[in-house]
Write a protein that binds this DNA or RNA. Structure first.
Lengths: 211, 211
DNA sequence: GTCTATACTTCGATAGAC
DNA sequence: GTCTATCGAAGTATAGAC
């Protein structure tokens, strides 16, 4: 993770991710973002115009980055079954590198796209489109169960985002002795989700089944 | 759905669910809640003391209700495989009756339990405990794959909550022609999730496999 | 591009009459 | 228990100097 960002807009954006993901749009404070970016409010407004514009820039950024991470997998020449497993690993990997992504995504879904413009919504919509394409490809080839592509997307993506994004609240629960926080390594979780996707989506191969 | 609530506290609570789920804790406005409840702020503070106390009361309410809905299933005498399918249907059914539940849950996870006290956290923690118990029971009997119970919980619950809670943003995307909103009936979705859970969690029966 | 000071607004909360 | 009126804090945004 590159720490010392020189330019203000980048530092502001980085600070905004932390603030907005932790507190949501309404709970975020422009002052806090500016202070964390070692800038000041005037600078923030100079570069981004408004709190909302900053927020949208951030959303566009992160969802575009997520889509860019998944697209090559969907467009590769691997068989669809393999693409599904790769997508699972890539989603988890992306979250590993962008730890604030789950909170941002969960909040936006909860918000119902309230303060989003068309561009931001389009960036979000790219994700189900990419995953859905793989599912349809596999269904056409007969190697993947024919399920509604959007449902397949949620079946794959939702547990990853919610489980990984749920780490803080599980930690809070553990602090109150409400759960045994036996957090599992990211690797184990990825393999669990790959197995889940394989078992629930991939048609048993006529030959060489391995379990 | 009973419409005409006589007592103020109940009307306020009902209005609060709508406001908090749509806008989150920080985005919710006490004035709006009072107006929607046909009460006034003073009344709200008289009954609940603060915005935060009202919010916690609401969370405690809804998570306790959700747990009460799932617990009888976990404690029934059905075989664990059946309990899993019943849990899927029950979660979806609960959301059908409490349409604001997904947004509330997603926001709380995103928030990481920030403004929650022990009681509220305990109510939330009951859900994974209930589902996890069924998974462990099945694993002990050998009918269910031995997976980490918390992971199993997220695998089951996350797609339901995110898919059903995602209806508004899908609608926003559809309004911008970004997706084909071929929303599927709740029934079809429940059956998809039951199939997903069965395929990914239930061990193939030694005899009478049906697919 | 950067900063300080401040205008303007909104919101949570309460006082006090009935 | 219910209401009106209002206080004080906090927040977004901008003016204007450098």
């Amino acid at each position: 993770m590159p720490r010392p960002l020189k330019v203000s807009p980048e530092r502001i954006l980085a600070a905004a991710v932390i603030e907005f993901s932790a507190r949501g749009f309404a709970g975020a404070r422009v002052d806090r973002i500016a202070r964390r970016a070692r800038a000041n409010k005037a600078m923030l407004y100079y570069h981004f115009g408004s709190k909302q514009a900053l927020y949208r820039a951030l959303l566009l950024n992160i969802f575009t980055a997520a889509a860019a991470r998944l697209r090559p997998i969907a467009e590769s020449s691997s068989p669809p079954e393999q693409k599904i497993e790769d997508l699972v690993a890539a989603i988890a990997g992306f979250i590993d590198e962008h730890e604030h992504f789950p909170a941002i995504m969960l909040r936006e879904i909860a918000e119902g796209g309230a303060h989003l413009d068309r561009g931001t919504l389009a960036a979000m919509a790219a994700l189900p489109a990419i995953v859905g394409r793989v599912v349809v490809e596999g269904a056409d080839k007969g190697t993947i169960r024919r399920v509604h592509p959007v449902m397949a997307y949620f079946t794959i993506m939702a547990p990853i985002v919610l489980y990984l994004g749920g780490a803080p609240i599980r930690k809070a629960m553990a602090a109150h002795k409400l759960v045994n926080l036996s957090e599992v390594t990211s690797d184990v979780f990825v393999r669990h989700m790959q197995a889940t996707a394989r078992l629930s989506l991939v048609n048993a191969a006529p030959s060489k089944a391995r379990s």
